[in-house]
């Protein structure tokens, strides 16, 4: 029965995009205008959803064919995940409650990172010696395994939300610093000279030229950092389990109890949080700089 649905999902998903892709290059550049809407539909919906269907199909195949019913807690059938983990309101409302705390930690950590990161980047941009002395450590900070920090963080900040938030800051700090710094430093030389001609002080130059020019890079840093912060929150909850349970707390509980359905449903919610945060920051960036900055132009 499940095998049936798998074989249906597989072939049904595959030929559809293949056929369209084969004809798409045909019309060439002259056909761009005509295929605009169809192309957008293809790229935005048809292709991603075909891949989605394919993944679900493979999931059914792996779970249904290679795992015996007793092993299936590792990778339960997708409809069981939905039934137990999402449609069961008792379970799902607990997941939503956990989601709330994960979101709080994610955004608190991210906000702190944004403030500290932009500030650090501005200081590094203003004084070369600050950059020389701090930037290498910003790189290193990102590479420290969180596991190594668990004892010291818990000693000073306890096993609850504060430590989790700090993990988020550590993990999301670097993308903001590096992107903002890059933005501040890659301002067109001609524009700098225009400001130099009029004896502009460094604060005015920063405020009227460099910071606005760095906004697109800064926002792409925010977007990367936001994704990192979600990961930071979940990982932090894994290590710091006291206080309100977040998605990561639940993940470790379900994993130890072999509750595969709820484990996978929680994973799904955590990924959706990541996607939502990514989409949100993409939108925010368009609102902030989309009026004058079009990455696809030129």
């Amino acid at each position: 029965m499940t095998v049936d649905s798998a074989t249906q999902a597989g072939p049904a998903a595959e030929p559809a995009p293949m056929g369209v892709v084969a004809t798409a290059p045909g019309p060439g550049s002259a056909g761009r205008g005509r295929s605009g809407l169809a192309g957008a539909f293809l790229n935005k919906f048809l292709l991603p959803f075909s891949v989605f269907a394919l993944i679900i199909g493979i999931w059914y195949l792996v779970s249904g064919l290679t795992l015996s019913p007793r092993q299936r807690f590792m990778l339960p059938l997708p409809h069981d995940v939905v039934r137990v983990g999402i449609l069961d309101w008792d379970n799902f409302s607990k997941t939503l409650e956990a989601l709330k705390y994960t979101v709080i930690v994610t955004f608190t950590g991210l906000a702190i990172s944004m403030v500290l990161g932009v500030l650090a980047a501005v200081l590094m941009n203003q004084a070369k010696w600050v950059e020389s002395s701090l930037y290498p450590w910003a790189v290193v900070l990102q590479t420290i395994p969180i596991l190594a920090l668990t004892p010291v963080l818990s000693f000073f900040f306890g096993f609850a939300l504060t430590s989790r938030t700090i993990v988020c800051v550590i993990i999301s700090f670097f993308p903001i610093v590096s992107n903002t710094l890059f933005g501040l430093q890659s301002v067109d030389r001609g524009m700098h000279e225009l400001f130099t001609l009029h004896h502009t002080g460094r604060f005015t130059r920063l405020w009227k030229l460099q910071l606005p020019a760095a906004m697109p890079a800064m926002f792409s840093g925010f977007r990367i950092a936001a994704g990192q912060s979600v990961i930071g929150a979940v990982v932090g909850e894994f290590f710091f389990k006291q206080g309100n349970a977040g998605l990561g707390t639940n993940l470790s509980v379900f994993a130890s109890r072999l509750e595969g359905e709820r484990l996978w449903a929680t994973t799904l919610v955590a990924s959706l949080l990541g996607v939502a945060v990514f989409v949100f920051f993409g939108w925010l960036s368009r609102v902030a700089v989309g009026r004058w900055y079009q990455p696809r132009r030129g």
Partner: peptide, 25 residues
């Protein structure tokens, strides 16, 4: 001083670009 490139600030509209040097001064 007019450069070979217009060197306008892309986030400022025409009026605000024209007013830039006056602001700096």
């Amino acid at each position: 001083y007019v450069f070979q490139d217009a060197t306008l600030l892309p986030w400022r509209n025409v009026a605000h670009n024209v007013g830039l040097l006056a602001e700096l001064e």
